[in-house]
């Protein structure tokens, strides 16, 4: 998929909300390396900073401090516009509340990222057809989101996230709004993605989701408190520390612009 060994690398990543008395450190000096192809699950109590971390990793929010690399490219200082361009190709988001564009049909939603990335209408349409087929919604492609069930909406959202074959898919409680049957469909899709070698970061409360991950990170008050590699543990002495800091000092070599 991608030649870079790490899809995501973060050093001392920090994000604060509010000022002075109301200041909240939603993400507090986090270091993180996500190898390409890994499925990482992030868990933790509500308000511990999981969503904020995910937004930072995907460039939806900019960090207050620290450094972030996507596919070896430093991205924490990029402008809003450059981040948007980066997201098109590199990141696919899946949200708890789906966040489909309500006015566009399922197929048009899936076409969105490809069209934004400058694909021809034909190519975008073709790709959307493939993806809707993959998530089993070909027969729903002309429906507006409002006419779809929660599970169907989330499958459309997953298809949309995959439209540009992104480096990493970031999912924020993707089953949080779904009943268990719909959640199972969505989980099956994530499992397929994992087996295809798609890099995945999933924020979840759901044990079943956590169980399918290669690695499980627990957060509290904006920081990691646990980091368990369930599969493909990193080699070397740092593994003994639970993989908390695998980077060399000064950031990834040769990639720091």
């Amino acid at each position: 998929m991608n030649a870079a060994p790490f899809a995501i690398q973060a050093r001392s990543l920090r994000r604060e909300h509010g000022e002075q008395q109301t200041l909240v450190r939603a993400v507090d000096e986090i270091d993180l390396d996500v190898p390409t192809g890994q499925t990482l699950a992030v868990t933790g109590p509500s308000g511990c900073g999981k969503s904020t971390l995910l937004h930072l990793l995907g460039g939806l929010e900019r960090p207050t401090g620290g450094a972030l690399w996507l596919a070896g490219r430093r991205v924490d200082g990029l402008s809003e516009r450059a981040l948007a361009r980066l997201r098109r190709r590199t990141v696919g988001f899946v949200f708890q509340a789906f966040h489909l564009v309500e006015e566009l049909s399922a197929r048009q939603n899936v076409e969105l990222p490809a069209l934004l990335a400058g694909a021809s209408p034909r190519a975008a349409r073709h790709r959307a057809g493939e993806l809707l087929d993959r998530v089993g919604l070909t027969h729903r492609s002309r429906h507006l989101p409002a006419a779809l069930s929660g599970g169907e909406r989330q499958r459309v959202a997953i298809a949309r996230a995959l439209a540009n074959a992104p480096l990493v898919v970031l999912a924020d409680e993707p089953t949080g709004n779904l009943d268990s049957a719909a959640a199972r469909d969505v989980l099956r899709l994530f499992e397929e993605l994992r087996q295809d070698g798609q890099t995945l970061v999933i924020v979840t409360h759901d044990d079943r989701v956590a169980a399918t991950a290669d690695r499980l990170v627990s957060m509290r008050d904006g920081a990691f408190v646990d980091d368990v590699w369930l599969a493909g543990a990193p080699a070397g002495p740092l593994a003994a520390l639970g993989g908390l800091a695998t980077g060399t000092p000064g950031g990834p070599t040769g990639l720091d612009g």
Partner: peptide
């Protein structure tokens, strides 16, 4: 409100503020 919601969703999928 509606425009904002949509703008957020479009931006999350990679639309620039310019677009």
């Amino acid at each position: 409100d509606q425009q904002l919601r949509r703008a957020g969703r479009l931006k999350a999928t990679g639309a620039t503020p310019g677009l």
